[in-house]
Each structure stands twice: as structure tokens, then as C-alpha cells.
Design a protein around this nucleic acid. Structure first.
Lengths: 127, 127
DNA sequence: TATAAGGCCTCCAGTAACTGGAGGGTCAAC
DNA sequence: GTTGACCCTCCAGTTACTGGAGGCCTTATA
């Protein structure tokens, strides 16, 4: 299967699939004589696997690890779980940060009456 | 005031202050004869203003707008409020996204018993 | 007065993970 | 035989800095 078909099957842009090949994350199983990348059904599974992992916020290096675990029949579920737990902690940290930000900013927005007058608590807070 | 002192007064790294000058966000009010950047007290206020705005997640272009509003005695509070409201919406969208992610991932983590066996619901979900 | 430390300068490169575009080859259909 | 849809490589740009090289300037100390 050529890159265009593979990309749409995996739900990724062609450019991204080519990029993943460039960085050695998912290399096509073969090259045709004309130089075209050839993707196997398994390659496409792995592309989709990476797409989902990325959607979960795993970094590309983490996806590399996950792919290795995915391919490893002797993997230990504990290894996978650990990666996922780290991601979960990242998410929670980010959530706390956003919540604090939201709190302050929404208070400021409510305190600001808007309109054409220059007086503005938001600017005052930033100043 | 030279850049080192200005940077620490504003709570920013020297490199960042130089960068802000490069992109024309906050240019030093003068240059000394030896080429050193000279920052005024007002420059430092604006540097700190940008630091706080950035901490709120405003992008550099947005900071540019905010700086213009900050400097404008005839600003309308409505303009500022609008920028802040857009940021608030961004934050809320991000929060919703993270909440969904957290929900799914934490369910998966709880469903995974870990250990040395290869069976893993997290991998299954990604596959 | 010499020198060493530290601050300052510019310019270049790298970060994460792509994305866009130029310039050009390949292939099937009309 | 030519149009259009693919595909290729390589280069540059994105965000907002950050790190480093190479070199000048200033200040303090010996």
C-alpha cells in the first residue's frame, strides 16, 4: 500500500507518516522500485497505534517505547502501566495549573465591566 | 539600567529580555555608547507586565496587543476584557480535553493490573 | 598596571512535532 | 501527449525561547 492510502487508513496526514519514517519511528516495510514507500497492514496498525498514543499526549519518544511494548509478546503490563501513570500525573499537574489560571482570570473578567472607559482591573492586575 | 539588572528586576532571564528586544516586543529605551542596552524604569514595568501576561498563557502577539492597551490611556476596558475572555475560552477548551483524557486514561490504568504478564488493557485500547 | 572574572554584544543552532512549499519524477486515463 | 493525481527529496518555517561560540567592555583585585 502506498503512503496516501496508508495515511488515510491510519487517520494521519501523509506528511506526518513521512515524518515518522524519517525519524525512524515507523519505517515502511519496503520501497517500490520507483522509490515509493510501501506500507504493510501491520505498518498501518502501528501508525494508528501511534496516532492514538499521541492523542493521549504521549510524546514521540514515549510512543517509541509503547510501540516496542506493543510489539513485544513478553512485555510486562507493569511497564505499560507505569508509562500511563506518568502521563496521568502530567495531566493532573496541567489540570491544576489550568484550574488556578481559570480561577484568577475568570475573577478578573467578572470584575471588569468592559465598555469604553479605560479603567480595567485586568490591566491593573497585570501591571 | 543594563540588561542584567533589568532582567532580574522584571523576573525574566537575560536571554528572554534580549529576545523580546529582537522581536520588537520591548525595545530598550536607549543604547549606551559601548552598545549595551539601557532599560528605563518604565521598560522594566513593561517587561514584568509581559511576564505576567505570558504566565496567563497569552501568546507573544497577544502580549503585544495587551502592551498597546496598557500604554493607551484611552483604551476601552471592553477590548481588554475581550482578549481575556478569549483566553478563558481557550483554557476551558483545554480543560475539557484534559478531563476527557484523564477520564479514559485513569480508567485504563485502573483496569490494568500491571505485573509481569503481557496482558494489558492499555495496549489493547491503543491497538 | 596587569590580569582575571563577569557582564555584555552578535550570530548561529537547537528544541517538539510537525507543516508548507519548491522542484521534479511516475503513472493511469483520456 | 498531456493532464492530474500521486509520489519523491530537501529546505524553511512554526512558538518562544535557550544554549553556546567568539569576542569586546568593565570592574575589582594583586
Amino acid at each position: 500500500m502506498r503512503i496516501g492510502e496508508a495515511a488515510s487508513a491510519a487517520g494521519l496526514p501523509v506528511k506526518t507518516v513521512r515524518y515518522y519514517a524519517d525519524i525512524g519511528l515507523i519505517e515502511p516495510s519496503a520501497r517500490a522500485e520507483n522509490g515509493y514507500r510501501e506500507y504493510s497492514a501491520d505498518d498501518i496498525k502501528r501508525l494508528a497505534f501511534v496516532r492514538r498514543s499521541r492523542a493521549f499526549g504521549f510524546s514521540v519518544p514515549e510512543c517509541r517505547d509503547l510501540l516496542a511494548l506493543y510489539a513485544d509478546d513478553n512485555r510486562s503490563a507493569g511497564d505499560v502501566k507505569q508509562l500511563a501513570e506518568e502521563r496521568l500525573k502530567d495531566i493532573e499537574a496541567k489540570q491544576a495549573e489550568l484550574a488556578a489560571l481559570h480561577d484568577t482570570l475568570s475573577k478578573l473578567v467578572h470584575a471588569c465591566q468592559g465598555g469604553d472607559r479605560p479603567n480595567c482591573p485586568i490591566i491593573d492586575h497585570l501591571a
